[in-house]
Computed example of a mutant assay.
Amino acid sequence: MVLEHYISDLLYRYNCVVVPGFGAFLTQKTTARINQDTNTFFAPSKSVAFNGQLISNDGLLVSYVSESEKISFEDALSNIEERVKWWKYILKEESSLTLKNIGLLTTNAEGKILFQPASEPNYLTSSFGLSNFNSIPVTREVLKEEVEAMEEKIPFVISPERRENNGFRPYLKYAAILLLAFSTGVTGYRIYQQQRSNEQVVRQDAQEYVTKQIQKATFFDIAPLELPTVTVAAKTNVVPANEKGEMHHIVAGAFRIKANADRKIEELQEKGFDAAYFGTNAYGLHVVTYASYANATDALRALRVIKRTQSKDAWLLSKK
């Protein structure tokens, strides 16, 4: 089992991945930056750090390994513990451990673990496809200094001139002023209309983007393969909503296409859940539930089990 491969997968989606008994790998978003010395532009990314104090098992890594390897939760935990023992042995004997696509771990004289993150890959999914690049520095000429140097060598002399009045008509001057004012007004009106048109285009684009994001919205689990069947709660807690006041529904997902929601219901029912079709939400998405409960305590207990063993994206919807 290549444990670092599963850690790398989770770092794309989570900011903290805990390796039980070893430590936690943390990510933090960094903005785009430029190296002034080399003129290198760096895209936004996630910087990876290591904290050896966070060793408690939160179930994320173990569940992912269990789902990927198609083994039980206990076997996955046992395999991880064996791998951690090997990592500690390598650090003790060789003082360094390289985890592919994650970084280099070393121990100092005091026995503390130091971490040097790998330069690749970039775990920020929004920066996918963006790479670092170098730019040629721009050389700007200081024209003011050149003009001052020319003035010192070639002085400019402005001599007054007398305008001769050769039949000049004063009203032409006023006509020219009116024409200039009119042309200025027309130009300003055109600029105003162009700005309004641009604002309308921007609003339309923003509305289309929000609509697309809403249509894409869905809840899903990260399981690459089928999950083990887990019995959550007795179905005797499930009562129709019209017989009691408030019902508590554990939501499994929301789908834009009704056929996908039906397939999700069949999949959950095969695993032993009392899955059902809840209806459509305010965004027109079809909501599917794991189960429904009249008792809030039972619903919360079932939700904790589902989030630990099935999907961390499950959530509770209480509605009368």
Rank of each mutant, 00 (worst) to 15 (best):
D9G: 07
Q36E: 09
S119F: 09
L60Y: 01
N166W: 02
R169S: 13
N108T: 00
T280M: 10
T106G: 04
T107C: 03
P228Y: 15
L225P: 01
R169A: 06
W86R: 12
S45A: 09
R163A: 14
E243Q: 13
E67F: 10
A252W: 04
I34Q: 07
D298T: 08
P240Q: 11
L317T: 01
V288L: 03
R13S: 08
Q53E: 13
V305G: 05
Y209Q: 15
Q193D: 00
Q28H: 07
V18L: 12
Q269G: 07
N15K: 02
A49P: 03
K173S: 13
Y277Q: 05
A43F: 10
A176T: 12
Q215F: 11
K312G: 03
E208K: 15
E151Q: 10
A254Q: 09
I90S: 08
E226G: 11
K271L: 09
Y283R: 13
L300Y: 09
F73K: 06
Y293V: 07
G279V: 04
R190M: 12
D313Y: 06
P137Q: 01
Y89S: 14
N15H: 06
V288D: 04
K88R: 11
I191C: 02
N35E: 04
S159V: 11
Q193E: 05
G111N: 01
L114V: 00
A302W: 00
I90Q: 11
L11Q: 02
K70C: 14
Y293S: 06
H248R: 10
F41P: 06
N15G: 12
L114N: 03
A24W: 01
F42K: 05
K258N: 00
T236D: 14
K271T: 05
V201D: 13
I214F: 03
A291E: 02
G185D: 08
P121I: 00
G103R: 04
V18I: 14
E161D: 08
L303T: 00
S56H: 14
E199K: 08
S159F: 13
T236K: 15
T218M: 00
E226C: 01
Q53A: 14
I136L: 07
F182C: 05
A261K: 02
A24Y: 04
F168G: 07
H286Y: 10
E110P: 02
S63Q: 08
T297H: 06
T98V: 14
V48R: 09
Y283N: 15
R196H: 11
K319W: 07
N198Y: 01
A181H: 01
P170R: 05
T211W: 09
R33V: 02
L77D: 10
H286Q: 04
Q116L: 13
L316D: 00
E226L: 10
